[in-house]
Design a protein around this nucleic acid. Structure first.
Length: 293
DNA sequence: AAGTGAACCTGAAGGC
DNA sequence: TGCCTTCAGGTTCACT
């Protein structure tokens, strides 16, 4: 699912419920997701207070009042739902068949916020590519999941000259380079396609060739930052099962220019081309052969 | 070393 | 209706 804008949308949705809240209890309903849960997962979280909920690339990072730090990744299909207020129906209480969706509710956090309100935060992940890990606060930056990550495409850090340095000398297609989390951290298949379209760059062009063109690098850096900023502003996209923490849908999908639009008209004014699909490194690339040439 | 493809897992969608 | 194949937002690992 989730690329950086979706993870940031989730973070913003969870923040008011998590930050300052005490973790009353954690239900861990299976031994593993993508990886096994850490030993004593629920026990180590119980009683902790959440100091802050941050994000690095596509990782959510919950800092607690004492070790450990909780690192969470949504994988392809992970999502959080918040149920606030008084005790609700417990699963099975009325002998309702558990819905198919509920079968993928893998973790439930029981929280009490500073105002004394209680919340249940449910992590659901049908494909189970998501994961939750612990890390000691002192060694967070050295954690294997985080240590190699590149620059965030938010803010102003990613500009033309930096992008040129990142792409310089690389023989891979620029599409693959933009997906490489060691270079830019947080881009995924959708927003890479969108950014390349905005900048008018063919996805198959060698990364090093883009690096050699200063104007092109400036345009691509600007396109990456703009598409990410706009998607965050719009509350993330909504593909299939991606939902925000309140259950509403992100709507950036309505402004996709090329992603999942194979055969449809290019949206660049005056272009007149049609969106094509090709496969690079096993993943679909959507682009306009007319204006990305 | 860098780059490609498979694997992880479930569900949705399309063809017949 | 069902059975089959293909495909999906990500990451990691095993190969060339």
């Amino acid at each position: 699912m989730p690329e950086l804008p979706e993870v940031e949308t989730v973070r913003r949705g969870l923040q008011p419920v998590f930050e300052g809240a005490r973790i009353l209890d954690v239900e861990q309903r299976r031994p593993d997701l993508r990886y096994p849960f850490p030993p004593d997962f629920a026990r180590r979280l119980r009683g902790r207070t959440v100091v802050s909920l941050g994000r690095r690339a596509k990782y959510l990072i919950a800092h607690l009042d004492a070790d450990p730090v909780l690192i969470c990744h949504l994988g392809m299909s992970g999502s959080f739902r918040i149920h606030s207020g008084a005790a609700e129906t417990l699963p099975g209480e009325f002998h309702h068949a558990r819905s198919k969706d509920e079968a993928h509710d893998h973790v439930v956090f029981h929280l009490k916020d500073q105002a004394g309100e209680t919340h249940r935060v449910v992590f659901n992940d049908p494909r189970r590519f998501g994961f939750m890990l612990f890390c000691e606060a002192a060694s967070l930056d050295a954690h294997p999941s985080l240590a190699g990550l590149g620059v965030e495409p938010t803010g102003n850090a990613l500009d033309g000259p930096l992008l040129a340095r990142l792409l310089s000398g690389r023989r891979v297609a620029v599409k693959a380079a933009l997906l490489d989390q060691r270079l830019i951290a947080g881009l995924g298949n959708i927003y890479v396609c969108e950014a390349l379209w905005r900048a008018g760059i063919p996805p198959t062009r060698e990364a090093g060739a883009v690096a050699a063109d200063r104007a092109l690098c400036a345009a691509l850096a600007e396109a990456v930052r703009a598409v990410i900023a706009e998607a965050i502003e719009a509350g993330g996209s909504s593909l299939r099962d991606h939902i925000r923490t309140d259950g509403s849908l992100g709507y950036f999908q309505h402004s996709f220019s090329v992603y999942d639009r194979e055969g449809e008209a290019c949206r660049r004014p005056g272009c007149g081309g049609a969106v094509s699909r090709l496969v690079q490194a096993g993943r679909s690339t959507f682009y306009c052969p007319s204006c990305q040439a």
